[in-house]
Design a protein around this nucleic acid. Structure first.
Lengths: 334, 334
DNA sequence: TTGTACGCGTTATCAA
DNA sequence: TTGATAACGCGTACAA
């Protein structure tokens, strides 16, 4: 038998209105009655039912997070940042993992109606405008992390600048033949991690007055296997590159594996630099472009909280900077 | 303006009872009226409010997962398994990350009352009997993963056997001085990952008729830094071990780092074997004891579903086996 | 086969 | 300062 507010009222000898006021710290309760109610609550070990509460308040105290959780360790890191911030605020986190496009679109179209969460954080996912509009109409507050849409406040890392720094560093070290392994481009081209990294690379080349030869660009999946395959392709060219820049650390790990298979020493024969700054990069002493993942997550949460309090706020685009981490896999060419 | 079941009833020209019956696929609705209702639903783009629904049904369709998400990559892997299984079932996952003991106990005491989730999955966390009883009384179905309590169905990996296999392998390779870096033991001793791994080690030594010298046992935190420190301690002994068995892969990674700092080659000068089977182990070609993490998560979910349908079921203890993975960090001593 | 009325546990309104 | 009562949106007896 669940104990309700009525039981408390009965035991305390007051009306349920008063109990409710006490629970919610509403003013206008005589201290004497307050203590009576409080002790009745303690005696019964009563807890208000959150469901009945949200029935009226239309709030659940939970935040939904839509994330391609499994695709890349990068997302796990983002999720950690989000989780830390949410826990500190006493908010519950409902995790919606998307593994396929169908699933993603399903969440985009159904979740806003469900009202099971007070706000939505969408990580690393492209939103088509029709879905964005649909979500916008529903009125649920949304913040995008590592993704961009003109309809929502979007927090992104400056991928152009990050890639630019990495490539510039390689060039400064004396590398001229630099291979680039990009990740597959999906969806929206206006903010696209892969495309932006390519742009950054071109900028660095341009600035140095060098030519980036198209055969040095290979696109692969964002994972280790993709990286390895792409590296093999790059390294089997007659004039093979002296350095490879990979669009993600996992791809860079694949490059490392390919190099080992081909008996190339890193960094003596080949410099390798990744992108993301996940933990493996540190373990393998991989040079990389470090993204502020935790910070991105935490900032995203605080932006969402603000938006929930002030739903009319217009969308903004916030860019965070990455940090170039030079470790053991890069050096000047022989 | 939210559209309710009344709107649908009005548009369809029927009573709300009928609409409800259609929504829940209850029998006893004339096909003609059913289609009328269905088209009204479509026309209004109506979705039943899950909150109001749970108000009556006392179900939320969500499962709570309590997990020390950040402590070890192992937990992340478990979580993945859980998430996959839950998504397939269309259940929502509410993530409760615990970072401190206080937080853990808070969840243990408050969550069961909240009724925000229909069931609870507790990962890698020790439950004191008083909390266990408290939870049991609340009636919420609970399954434990990588943890044990007599009060709940518990899924564990056979840590004794796993450690036994690892150490036995090292001994068979000819190692006699084997260092063991254990993780800190917390809580319950009856099922304890750390203690069981120690027991397994002793069994292997006993079976081989060898003596395990106490100075070869060091306890550290479950992470990389702990492992590194412990390894330094072990490797600075006069008669230093020819092999080190670490209670987790992350500790083993620390061992690798220590070895590099000390200019010891792995595996020529030192064999290293870990425990867990997380992705880094594969990347670093670390020999390890592979735990079936995904399987554990998925099995846990299916056990929980069964328990939710049949709450009276008595607790059972289920042991899964681990697999010895020999990679590049182990070989016979010089 | 269908419609009505009631109850789920809370918050908010309003009169006392 | 308080208590009674009306919502909130839905499921379900019960009556028709």
């Amino acid at each position: 038998m669940t104990t309700t507010i009525h039981d408390v009222a009965r035991i305390a000898g007051v009306g349920i209105g008063t109990v409710s006021r006490v629970i919610n710290n509403n003013p206008g309760v005589k201290p004497a009655t307050r203590t009576k109610v409080l002790s009745a609550i303690a005696q019964l070990n009563y807890r208000p039912d959150p469901i009945a509460r949200s029935m009226i308040s239309k709030r659940t105290g939970a935040i939904g997070v839509i994330v391609p959780f499994f695709t890349r360790p990068f997302n796990t890191e983002l999720l950690r940042g989000v989780e830390i911030a949410l826990t500190q605020l006493g908010k519950e986190l409902v995790l919606y993992n998307v593994m396929t496009d169908t699933q993603r679109d399903h969440y985009f179209s159904e979740l806003p109606m469900h009202r099971r969460v007070d706000g939505l954080l969408i990580l690393s996912l492209q939103i088509e405008d029709t879905f964005a509009l649909h979500i916008k109409e529903s009125g649920i507050p949304v913040i995008l992390l590592d993704a961009y849409s003109p309809f929502f406040t979007s927090l992104v890392v400056d991928n152009i600048k990050g890639a630019y720094q990495a490539v510039k560093y390689l060039i400064e070290q004396g590398h001229q033949r630099i291979g680039f392994i990009n990740g597959v481009i999906e969806g929206n081209i206006k903010f696209n991690q892969a495309n932006d990294r390519l742009i950054g690379l071109h900028r660095a080349f341009g600035e140095a007055g060098l030519l980036f030869e198209p055969e040095l660009l290979v696109t692969s999946e964002w994972d280790r296997y993709g990286g390895k395959q792409a590296a093999c392709q790059l390294l089997s060219q007659e004039k093979r590159p002296t350095a490879i820049f990979a669009a993600s650390d996992m791809q860079a790990v694949g490059v490392l594996e390919a190099a080992r298979d081909l008996n190339l020493r890193v960094p003596e024969d080949l410099s390798v630099i990744g992108f993301d700054g996940i933990e493996v990069a540190e373990l393998l002493e991989l040079s990389t472009v470090q993204q502020p993942m935790r910070q991105l997550g935490e900032l995203g949460v605080s932006k969402l909280i603000v938006l929930m309090k002030n739903p009319q706020q217009s969308p903004e685009l916030i860019r965070l900077n990455s940090t170039l981490m030079i470790r053991r896999t890069t050096r000047a060419p022989a």
